[in-house]
Structures are given as structure tokens and as C-alpha cells.
């Protein structure tokens, strides 16, 4: 009886148009999560390490964009390319200073170093950029709203998933069909053997961080366009959520990360849309999803089973 009433409630708030509206929002949020989640999953695949600083690299990208457009008045298309390059370089610097010296250290040290790098970036951002949130400059090209039937759609809502899918295929091509990609796959299987086969481990790992950070940069810029307010701690919660997306999809698996991103994005939007009384728990949704996945299928949706050898 209670369930029936509950379902009735949902049907009352949810017309087909509303549903489509929420679904488009969910897909565009999910694509953002997917873009950032790919970075986590790539680094995890190759180093077996959560890159805690990934969310902060994402935050840095939005600030780079802000300063490039607002302070130096560089047109947005040049800015986007510049920011992607700069963020990639930042990722490589973080890897070289916080992760490379600890390559043979116990995992717990590397984890702590990762958390330290993340806090350093956040605090640096507070000191350099200031703690007050800033308005992200959004070119009108992206923010125009048009109507499909009775569903109002921002251009961005379409652009984000398209960008995400294009980048996904580019990345899959890079990993499966190029020499660097082959090196990445080799290193992620076995460091020692890859080294013996003549793969430059440090260079490959650095490249992985670079590519992951570039994707985070794209994600960051899109995030800024969608939620035009940037602050030094803005990367923390999206960072955690995207990591969760990567785990849900099966960490180390790029397609899995994309699927996880969509599940998380659509799930979050739908939760708020269907059960408005739970709005305050929106951020908890991701964590509950994570714990469920870890308990019932720790390898995620697309992950492969890992057995521990003695």
C-alpha cells in the first residue's frame, strides 16, 4: 500500500517531458564524470594507485581557463588548447615530484604522498588564486538554450556528451593502436617484464598522467561552463565522485569508467528528481553506490577478477 502511494507520488511529479529533461541533464553530468573518471582509471591501471590529486588538477584547469580568458583576453578556442597542454604538463610535474620518488616504497607511503600532493595543490590554489569563488567566463556559443519539443536544452548539454564520446574513441585508438599505447598496456600488466622488453617505464607512466590530466582539463572546462563558479576546493567532491565512477565501472577499464560515469550522473539527477525530499543526500548517493559495489562486486561492472598470489 505504502509502495503504491509512493509510486503514485513519483508519477505525479514525473511527466514524460520532465523525464526527458532530467535524462538529458543526467547524461551531460554523466559525461563530465566519465571524462574525469578516465584519468583515475588510467592511472590506477598502470600504477595501482588512486591519484588523489586528480580532482585538484581538474580544479587547476578551470583556474587556468579563467585567467587565460579574463586576465589575458585570449580567445576561448586558443585558451582551451593552451589549458589542455598546461594541465597535462601539471599532471606530469605532480607525477615526477610526488609519485616517481616513491615507486618502490610501500603502498601506504605512496597513498599518503598522493593525499599530500592533493592538499598542496588545494592550498596553493587558495594562496595564489584566493579563497573567494570566481565566475567562470562562459562564451555564449555554449550556453544558448534551444527547445526540442517541450524540452529546453542548453547547447552545452549536447556538446559535452559529444566531446566525451569523441575523446573516448580517440583514447581507445591511442591505447590499442599506437606504440605508446602498447607500452602503457604492457606496463599496466607487469612493470618488470615491460622494462625487460625495453619499455621506458618512467616515460610511459608520465605520459599516462599527462593524458589523464588533459582529459581532466577538458572535463574541468566543461564543468566550468556548466556550473560557472570556480573555487579552490571545487575539485574535491567531483574528484571523489569520479573515482567512485571509475570503481563502479571496474577500475583500470576505460569503457568501464565511462559506464560508471553515466550511472553516477544519471542516478544522481534521477534521485533528486524522483525523491525531492532526499535532495540533501545527493552527495551521499555516490558513496552509497560505491560501498554497495565494493561489497557485492569489488571488481566493478567491467573489471576483471584479481586473485592474490602468495
Amino acid at each position: 500500500m505504502a509502495l503504491k502511494l509512493f509510486l503514485q507520488d513519483i508519477l505525479d511529479v514525473m511527466t514524460p517531458e520532465m523525464f526527458l529533461q532530467h535524462l538529458t541533464n543526467g547524461i551531460s553530468l554523466g559525461s563530465l564524470y566519465a571524462l574525469v573518471a578516465i584519468g583515475y582509471t588510467m592511472v590506477y591501471g598502470i600504477l595501482r594507485l588512486i591519484n588523489f590529486a586528480h580532482g585538484d588538477i581538474f580544479m587547476m584547469a578551470t583556474y587556468f581557463t579563467f585567467y587565460s580568458i579574463v586576465m589575458f583576453s585570449i580567445p576561448w578556442y586558443v585558451t582551451f588548447i593552451l589549458v589542455i597542454i598546461m594541465t597535462g604538463a601539471l599532471g606530469m610535474v605532480v607525477e615526477a615530484s610526488a609519485y616517481r620518488p616513491l615507486r618502490d616504497a610501500p603502498r601506504i607511503s605512496i597513498l599518503i604522498s598522493a593525499i599530500g600532493a592533493s592538499f598542496l595543490l588545494e592550498n596553493l590554489a587558495i594562496v595564489i588564486f584566493g579563497g573567494r569563488p570566481k565566475a567562470f567566463p562562459a562564451p555564449e556559443l555554449f550556453t544558448k538554450v534551444f527547445m526540442v519539443g517541450s524540452v529546453s536544452v542548453q547547447r552545452l548539454t549536447i556538446i559535452i556528451p559529444v566531446v566525451a564520446v569523441v575523446l573516448l574513441f580517440a583514447l581507445l585508438y591511442l591505447i590499442n593502436n599506437t606504440k605508446s599505447g602498447m607500452a602503457m598496456r604492457a606496463v599496466s600488466k607487469d612493470h618488470e617484464t615491460a622494462r625487460l622488453m625495453g619499455v621506458d617505464i618512467d616515460r610511459t607512466i608520465s605520459l599516462t598522467f599527462g593524458i589523464g590530466s588533459m582529459l581532466a582539463a577538458v572535463g574541468g572546462m566543461m564543468w566550468g561552463l556548466k556550473f560557472p563558479q570556480i573555487a579552490p576546493l571545487m575539485g574535491v567532491i567531483p574528484g571523489l565522485k569520479c573515482f567512485i565512477a571509475a570503481v563502479v565501472g571496474g577500475i583500470g577499464n576505460i569503457k568501464g569508467a565511462v559506464i560508471g560515469g553515466f550511472i553516477l550522473g544519471i542516478g544522481e539527477i534521477m534521485l533528486v528528481a524522483l525523491l525531492p525530499s532526499l535532495t540533501g543526500y545527493r552527495d551521499a548517493f555516490a558513496f552509497i553506490l560505491l560501498i554497495m559495489i565494493l561489497l557485492f562486486k569489488p571488481t566493478g561492472i567491467m573489471g576483471e577478477k584479481i586473485t592474490e598470489k602468495v
Partner: peptide
């Protein structure tokens, strides 16, 4: 390892 770290962090956040 890091799964535990993230899960406990998640619980703390919840």
C-alpha cells in the same frame, strides 16, 4: 588498501 581508504572516507562523508 586504497579501496578501504576510499570506502571509509565515503562512510565518514556520509
Amino acid at each position: 588498501g586504497d579501496y578501504l581508504a576510499i570506502a571509509t572516507l565515503g562512510f565518514s562523508e556520509i
